[in-house]
Nucleic acid binder design. Structure first.
Length: 830
RNA sequence: GGGCAGAUGGCGGAAUGGUAGACGCGCUGGUUUUAGGUACCAGUGCAGCAAUGCGUGCAGGUUCAAGUCCUGUUCUGCCCACCA
């Protein structure tokens, strides 16, 4: 082995395959969830959609979680680190349309390829827990959850204007419309009236919002985004009677009840249900035309803030309950049916939108809020700040804030209003007119109406005899054998729901199934899930800040309320990793600047890819992939390899740790460096996952060891300790390299089963320190002094120093600050 | 328009209020090599021969001492947005 003729070079491709096979065979990363002798740790990456190939974003995500999982394991935790596939979704269906490959075949081939790629990255997954959301053993339970929601009154069907993407030929949830465009294909989203299934996430708006305060392990950025999305506002509802319609009132929602005396008209959303009834004959034609044009507008057109305000009057009037004044009723598309009550009181003097509208249609303005600082003029511009009430009857003179309370109170007392908390969040539209998803387990019976499929009949299997080319309805509806069924209640002929579920439903509970993935009788065993949840560390992209992370929280709360689990939030700690860029630009196929992970594995090995992708930036920041950087990491690993292999004759990892107090000179220095590195790496890994600084410390350590003069004739206990420590500290980062070297050195078992080294704090303290001498805060001299040199001695040294005296320029010090082991600062008159 | 981040060499980035620029990339010079690459050594914030001066987006402030704390401001990125 030690023969000079046989110096082995670093061949990552060979050793990586060898160890991956070995770990697989040994089931090295299998988790025994029944073992409660050790504390549990659940490390989870957001599972991927099997698009076909891994990209660098995946590599970064999974490497980060893998390092955490391995690190925790070496700390004695029973670690659960699973992987699976979010495998329903549109690309599979598009492949079917384009090339006739069945979606299932396409999906599973992609999974096989990507699984092989994941294995070649050396990730410590327990593959026995792999879940596939598109497989019956999983979607059976997704359907079961739908039924649970239905029974709890949290799933309902309603006809509503919905977001429709023409390209994807399906509806979209509110969360999937980004700037008016489809999240997947950037097509302009239009409004369509359809009868669709919804989950009542709005019932949970308040709890989803308030619980964010109890998630200290989540980045503020994500919490803020969710808060904005849920969009709580507190205000008042006021009922306005309709003139000439004694039984009809219109309720408006306002956050500015203090301006209610300034109402000069009222506006309804064009789709408001009272529009037909309240349109007078002479306005019918204009109103119909306006409603028609509003209907065909896309969301982006309609909500554009810089568009001219348009609207038409209905001919009816409402009565302001505070002033008994008659004000005209209009419709305008700047009022949204989905928010509040779909009706707003218009106060053009104190709201910019109402002001613009009033100016366009010559509606009157009225000043009801006066500024305490200047005289308000509302002719040219609305005054939207709070102030003092004027022209407001009994409320004159109150400040806006008090007035809001008094006016709301007055409305409540008189029965025409109430305080109301409003959310921007809307119910989650879960129907999709697509094939490759979990069928919604519902049946339509001519006599019994909507009937849920009994649990015993789950899963409702996806049919295979479908025509993928239909648009506007689910391809599932082309399967006669699927559609025609019998009613579970009356056993008469009935038809099945042909829509499938949004894939975000499938991914809202997968983290629970990972704990008990093979359970055939139940969705999961509650006791086991209660023990293993929460996810201790969740890692994924910021793009899921709202969508997936909000839905998963919602599901968890519902399952808690239904008594299946005993916790309210799924993810204790969340790390949102930054994007992977290439030379400063976002990697994309269209730009042609992608880096294929396989190429990197082949050329440099997985350890290099892992090491590099953790190296330059903190995990939360964007990471710039540079070929020169990969090269540099490869060289470093090769240097590390040689450092060990070339010095094997001096190494014996079974030697006992030397006694620090017996060490001197370079041995003492190396021992110190070893323990300083343990300290630094451990801190950076356990507190903030600062992989970039971990790597710089590892590099400093290797540089330090390289400078140490090794005697090749004898086993050196200090050098052996340094190398042994290096391999253990690097094991989570570069698992193959360290395993191979560990084995070469005759280490016992796997390097990944070693305990994390502990710090000898005595060795952290240096014998001498460098102290700086400052004059007026500027460093003028440095001196190396014994540790803990006394203040007086330091002061004397500084004052007698030539260079210090030069800059003191003969002046008498006003003050001398001495910080032991750090500095002396001499303050002289300037 | 509202909210949240952030701004440090040629580049990615380090810095419990106490030596700004760790570590790496790049670059310069050198050694080894037929040569290139590799490896190794030295250097590398800016200006200057040097002494020295100046330096963490900008303007102030607190402090013996500020990248770090405070006030204001500019710019960049992200999220939300006719939300009443």
């Amino acid at each position: 082995m030690d023969s000079l003729l046989q110096i082995e070079s670093y061949e990552p491709q060979v050793i990586e395959r060898k160890w991956q096979t070995q770990w697989d065979t040994d089931k090295q990363y299998q988790t025994d969830t029944a073992d409660s002798s050790r504390p549990k740790y659940y490390a989870l990456s957001m599972f991927p959609y099997p698009s076909g190939r891994l990209h660098m974003g995946h590599v970064r995500n999974y490497t980060i979680t893998d390092v955490i999982a391995r690190f925790k394991k070496m700390h004695g935790f029973n670690v659960l680190h699973p992987m699976g596939w979010d495998s329903f979704g549109l690309p599979a269906e598009n492949a079917a349309i384009k090339s006739g490959i069945p979606p299932a075949k396409w999906t599973f081939e992609n999974i096989d390829h990507m699984r092989a790629q994941l294995k070649s990255l050396g990730l410590s997954y327990d593959w026995d827990r792999e879940v596939f959301t598109c497989r019956e053993d999983y979607y059976k339970w997704t359907q079961w959850l739908f039924l649970l929601f239905y029974k709890a009154g949290l799933a309902y069907k309603k006809e509503a204007p919905v977001n429709w993407c023409e390209t994807c030929a399906t509806v979209l949830a509110n969360e999937q419309v980004i700037d008016g465009l489809c999240w997947r294909c950037d097509t302009l989203v239009i409004r369509k009236n359809l009868s669709q299934w919804f989950f009542k996430i709005t019932d949970y708006a308040e709890r989803l919002l308030n619980n964010l305060d109890h998630l200290p392990g989540w980045p503020d950025r994500v919490k803020t985004m969710q808060r904005n999305w849920i969009g709580q506002s507190t205000g008042t509802e006021v009922d306005f009677a309709v003139d000439g319609h004694p039984d009809t009132t219109i309720t408006i929602y306002t956050t500015r009840p203090d301006t209610i005396f300034g109402v000069t008209y009222m506006v309804l959303a064009p789709e408001h249900p009272l529009v037909d009834q309240l349109t007078t004959a002479e306005h019918k034609e204009a109103v119909e035309a306006y409603r028609q044009s509003a209907r065909t507008k896309s969301e982006i057109e309609r909500t554009s803030t810089d568009r001219e305000k348009t609207g038409v009057p209905l001919g009816s009037f409402v009565i302001n309950p505070f002033t008994q004044e008659k004000v005209p009723l209009w419709i305008a598309d700047y009022v949204l049916l989905e928010y509040g009550t779909g009706a707003v009181m218009a106060v053009p003097g104190h709201d910019e939108r109402d002001h613009a509208f009033a100016k366009a249609y010559q509606l009157p303005l009225r000043l009801v809020i006066q500024s305490p600082a200047f005289s308000v003029d509302i002719e040219s511009q609305a005054y939207t700040e709070p102030g003092i009430l004027v022209n407001s009857g009994q409320f004159n003179g109150l400040k806006s804030q008090e007035a809001k309370e008094h006016i709301t109170q007055f409305a409540e007392t008189n029965g025409f209003g109430r305080a109301k908390t409003q959310y921007r969040l809307r119910d989650w539209l879960v129907s999709r007119q697509r094939y490759w998803g979990a069928p919604i387990p519902m049946v339509y019976c001519p006599s019994c109406d909507v009937v849920p499929v009994p649990e015993s009949e789950l899963p409702v299997r996806l049919p295979e005899d479908v025509d993928f080319s239909v648009t506007g309805r689910s391809p599932v509806s082309t399967s006669e054998s699927f559609v025609n069924t019998s009613c579970p209640k009356c056993h008469g002929p009935a038809t099945r729901e042909t829509d499938t579920m949004d894939t975000f439903v499938c991914s809202s509970w997968y983290f629970l199934r990972f704990v008990d993935p093979l359970n055939e009788d139940r969705i999961f065993d509650s006791a086991t899930v209660n023990h293993w949840m929460n996810v201790d560390q969740y890692v994924g992209g910021i793009e899921h800040a709202i969508l997936h992370l909000l839905y998963a929280r919602f599901f968890t709360m519902v399952l808690h309320d239904q008594g299946l689990i005993n916790f309210l939030e799924p993810f204790d700690n969340l790390l949102t990793q930054g994007m992977v860029l290439k030379d400063g630009a976002k990697m994309s196929k269209s730009k042609g600047n992608t880096v294929d992970p396989d190429t990197v594995f082949h050329q440099y090995g997985a350890d290099t890819a892992r090491f590099f992708i953790l190296s330059d930036s903190p995990p939360q920041s964007d990471f710039d992939w540079k070929d020169a950087g990969v090269e540099g990491c490869y060289k470093f690993l090769r240097k590390t390899w040689r450092l060990v292999v070339d010095n094997q004759s001096a190494l014996d990892v079974s030697l006992a740790e030397p006694n620090y107090r017996d060490l001197q000179g370079l041995q003492r220095d190396l021992y110190q460096l070893t323990h300083q590195t343990i300290q630094g790496v451990t801190t950076d890994l356990s507190q903030e996952f600062q992989f970039n600084t971990v790597i710089s410390k590892v590099r400093e350590f290797v540089n330090g060891i390289s400078r140490y003069p090794v005697s090749t004739n004898t086993k050196d206990p200090v050098f052996s300790l340094a190398i042994k420590t290096l391999l253990i500290l690097m094991a989570p980062l570069t698992p193959h390299l360290t395993e191979e070297l560990w084995q070469k050195l005759g280490g016992s078992g796997s390097v990944h089963h070693q305990s994390w080294p502990s710090v000898n704090t005595e060795a952290l303290v240096a014998d001498s320190v460098e102290v700086v001498f400052q004059v007026n805060g500027k460093v003028r001299e440095k001196a190396t002094v014994p540790l803990n040199t006394e203040k007086g001695v330091l002061e004397k040294m500084a004052l007698e120093n030539d260079r210090v005296q030069k800059f003191m320029d003969g002046k008498t010090p006003l003050k001398v600050i001495v910080v032991p082991n750090k500095l002396v600062n001499i303050v002289v008159p300037q």
